[in-house]
Nucleic acid binder design. Structure first.
Length: 486
RNA sequence: GCGUCGGUGGUCUAGGGGUAUGACUUGGGCCUUCCAAGCCUACUGCCCGGGUUCAAAUCCCGGUCGACGCACCA
């Protein structure tokens, strides 16, 4: 087990995921399409378990409300949000010096490179939103209708929350802070999607938008519960540091308590689902890489064997950017009349937004990679996915020790007992017992249950634990409890 | 988007102008009282389109997908 990580081969994760039904390239029979993946049976289970833990963490743990907004929105939304600003702009690249330029009034494809005078070639559209039409346009007014009918697939889930803000704040009886979460698909027409799940054209985001009175950004009510947690922080400028949250916020490295609280919480969540802390760091965006809406942004990065440090979560302080632009474009008041402790009078303020934004697919990849171990067992190798029990796709597999009808029937009966108790269990009677253990190891099933002749007499089974390969004898009635305890 | 290299059963692979090698996996059977054992048996393949040729998996062109580099990544 000690050298397991060193044994891990690059690329093996993706191969395993494909072979065992976690993840498949989409549209394979038609030649495929870059940037699209389908989740197979085990992948869909694993992904859903990640999402369930996320809902538990933010929905129940933080008391945030989940909504489900549309994935398509009319042009107005993205005109206001700023996402459309560069629509239809072409990018060009200089053949000679490889400099990259945006095509605009000053510069077009027929001109020479402003840097070196070299020839320019087209390098794609800069706006990455998928465009569509809402409704039918026909007849004489087609052109005008088409303009009205322009719609886009959302490039982030967040806008669905912002545009519902006046509804949401009323729902919350006009009180701040207010946390709203959403899990769903987002779409970006990437110029060059690559690296399996790392850059997709259709992907799943889980986002929380935390609305807070700007005067209270430095008074998070639960700050004390997390202030001593130490994180590896990489500032936008300067060297990486290990600091407690309290030190990071007091020194001004992290802008305020709310942002800091959520940075810590992101780390807590990632560890909870099984991503090792020593593979995590938080990196602050430099000014020049910040999104158009962000004031400060910290990425949670995962250290991948294959891809190096990669962003899996972003925590942004979006300030009042989104509510202000939607208020301006829609003419709907997005301010809240609130009172703040210690301030004399109630005041109308536009709330600020702290946004932890999770790339579920990337987290899925990080989890697969960091859970995969190659081990030597006797003369054989075993591949094992050490998923936490709660997120493993399949909780238990039940085997007859021998290929005999009485044992097979008993094993199938035990599977049904577990299913009736809401334990996701599977039957496997093919091949040798060792082969069946290996099969389950490779998909991360934490418990294998074996039925033997003694079971028929004493009603007890052998449970073999995935990571230790130890076996214990447990009465059938206690299986669920045994599994739950661990 | 550009450039380089590549694509052979589910996976990995040999070969390479005359429809293809081996291993593993998978299904069925025998054997087997706990960690990929053994034996028998079965299924499955040359990325797509066009061209050259008597004949293309093989050569040529285009596309597509993938890896890597550049660029992009709200």
């Amino acid at each position: 087990m000690s050298s397991a990580k060193e044994d891990r081969k690059e690329g093996e994760v993706v191969e395993l995921a494909r072979r065992r039904g976690f993840l498949w390239p989409a549209f394979e029979i038609y030649g495929g399409a870059a940037g699209f993946y389908d989740y197979g049976p085990l992948g869909a289970l694993l992904k859903r378990h990640i999402e369930t833990e996320w809902r538990r963490f933010y929905g129940i743990g933080e008391g945030f409300y989940e909504i489900e907004a549309t994935t398509i929105a009319p042009k107005d939304v993205f005109e206001a949000s700023g996402h459309l600003k560069s629509f239809a702009d072409l990018a060009v690249v200089c053949k000679n010096c490889k400099s990259f330029f945006r095509v605009d009034d000053e510069l077009n494809i027929n001109k020479k490179c402003p840097g070196c005078g070299g020839e320019l070639v087209e390098a794609g559209e800069l706006n990455l939103m998928f465009q569509t039409r809402i409704g039918v346009s026909k007849g004489e007014s087609a052109e005008r209708d088409q303009k009205k009918s322009e719609g886009y697939l959302r490039p982030e889930t967040a806008q669905g929350i912002f545009i519902n803000f006046q509804r949401l704040i009323r729902f919350n009886r006009d009180k701040l802070p207010l946390g709203v979460i959403q899990i769903g698909k987002a779409y970006r027409n990437e110029i060059s999607p690559r690296k399996s799940l790392i850059r997709l054209r259709e992907f799943t985001m889980a986002e929380a938008e935390v609305f807070v009175d700007p005067r209270e950004k430095n008074r998070h009510p639960k700050f004390d519960t997390v202030k001593d947690i130490v994180m590896k922080l990489v500032p936008g400028e300067g060297a990486e540091v290990e600091k407690s949250l309290e030190e990071a916020v007091r020194s001004g490295l992290i802008a305020n308590e709310y942002l800091g609280y959520h940075v810590v919480k992101v780390g807590e969540f990632l560890e909870r689902i099984g991503i090792p802390k020593d593979r995590l760091q938080f990196r602050q965006h430099r000014k020049d890489e910040m999104a158009h809406y962000a004031r400060d942004c910290w990425d949670a990065e995962f250290l991948s064997d294959r891809y190096g440090w990669m962003e899996i979560v972003g925590v942004a302080d979006r300030g009042d950017y989104d509510l202000s632009v939607h208020a301006a474009f829609s003419k709907v008041d997005m301010s809240v009349h609130t009172e703040v402790e210690g301030e004399a009078a109630a005041e109308k303020v536009v709330p600020h937004v702290i946004e932890p934004s999770f790339g579920i697919d990337r987290i899925f990849y990080a989890l697969l990679e960091s859970s995969l171990y190659n081990e030597q067992v006797g003369k054989e190798k075993r591949k094992v996915l050490r998923f936490k029990s709660e997120i493993a796709p399949i909780k238990a597999a039940v085997f007859p020790l021998l290929n005999r009808d009485v044992l097979k029937e008993k094993a199938k009966a035990v599977v049904q007992i577990l299913r009736d108790e809401s334990v996701f269990a599977e039957y496997d009677g093919s091949g040798s017992i060792g082969r069946r253990y290996r099969r389950q190891d490779e998909i991360g099933t934490p418990y294998c249950i074996t039925i033997d002749y003694e079971t028929l007499e004493d009603g007890a089974v052998t449970i073999r634990e995935r990571d230790t390969m130890k076996q214990v004898r447990v009465p059938i009635a206690d299986i669920k409890g045994f599994i739950a305890e661990k």
